[in-house]
Design a protein around this nucleic acid. Structure first.
Lengths: 171, 171
DNA sequence: GTCCTGGCTTAGAGTTTTACAAGTCAGCTA
DNA sequence: TAGCTGACTTGTAAAACTCTAAGCCAGGAC
């Protein structure tokens, strides 16, 4: 199937996934991930968490999101296990709450970096406003697609195959 | 600043970006990217485009998005230059429109892969429903953060620095 | 010419996301 | 004890996103 000559900018569907018309992607992992982080505010809050922000007012101010939305988003991200709320006390201060990234939240970092990289390339005519560098060597850091054998892979070199969690007629 | 011992799951802010309170990230590339693709439907449409879908009805059906939203999203993505509309004609058929990824759209692929990978890991208890493999070697493909010198880098090894596009008091 | 199909558009309505402005409340400081 | 501050909550309202259901139009097929 799909013997058409144009495969530019697409992956190749292989095995039971070809043709595309034969299966549904309703429960796909990307769709599930989007249920958790599809709002602009959620990702901005996470950005700040990666920058080290931990306090309510700082999140609200630094993301430019209003207080009510910030509160809602922080509560959601805590409930979903991306952030953890922990009390702490600075000397002479009363007890406060800090929001910190959990492992689950921290592993979203590549998503944010990929978005930033794309934004730098296509939406920032004057160049990247901020850059990530590797502390040891000072070189800029970027996102790569690489296979377990170590080869860098482009979109057109990829196959999409059924995985272990695939149910009949879904993905 | 920020001499606190806990830097877990955060990058280090360096140079003029430290302390965080001293600058605004309002125009950051991630925020700009989110203006374009922050809706669930936009990313689902792009997912299908990467799977090779090109026609209106197929987009609507395969993403599970309603017709009006599909139409709105396709039009937006075309306007933003992520998809291109091109007429084509199959023999014996009338002229149709195909939506294809542009280079700008195709370069969002790492974002989708990163989301999928995260969803596979945290939201798919039975394993990934679909997997991407490198056609040449058959090995699974994943997202990596790597610096220009070739080192793989973890979140905690990264510095955030001012880039060429940074204006005074913004990021 | 009439039917069918692909590619939309329109109408009407519900939910979510967002903002602004103001209020609340606990607990430390003075 | 009166105030201040951080962390929210409440009220109001607009905008965005989403749905279902139905309608429209162009261009082959018959």
């Amino acid at each position: 199937m799909d013997t058409s000559p144009r495969a530019a900018h697409t992956v190749r569907l292989s095995g039971p996934l070809s043709p595309r018309a034969g299966w549904q992607a309703t429960g796909c992992s990307m769709a599930r991930a989007l249920e958790v982080v599809s709002s602009r505010s959620a990702l901005l809050v996470l950005r700040e968490a990666f920058y080290g922000t931990t306090r309510f007012d700082d999140f609200a101010q630094r993301t430019g999101i209003s207080d009510p939305v910030t509160a809602a988003r922080l509560a959601e991200l805590v409930e979903e296990g991306l952030l953890a709320k922990e009390p702490y006390r600075e000397p002479g201060q009363r007890s406060r709450l800090a929001y910190r990234l959990t492992d689950k939240g921290a592993e979203l970092f590549p998503v944010l970096v990929a978005l930033m990289e794309w934004g730098d390339r296509w939406l920032a005519p004057d160049g990247a406003p901020v850059v990530l560098t590797h502390r040891d060597c000072g070189e800029p850091v970027h996102i790569e697609l690489r296979c377990a054998a170590g080869h860098q892979a482009s979109l057109e070199e990829l196959d999409l195959e059924a995985g272990p969690g695939r149910q009949a007629a879904s993905a």
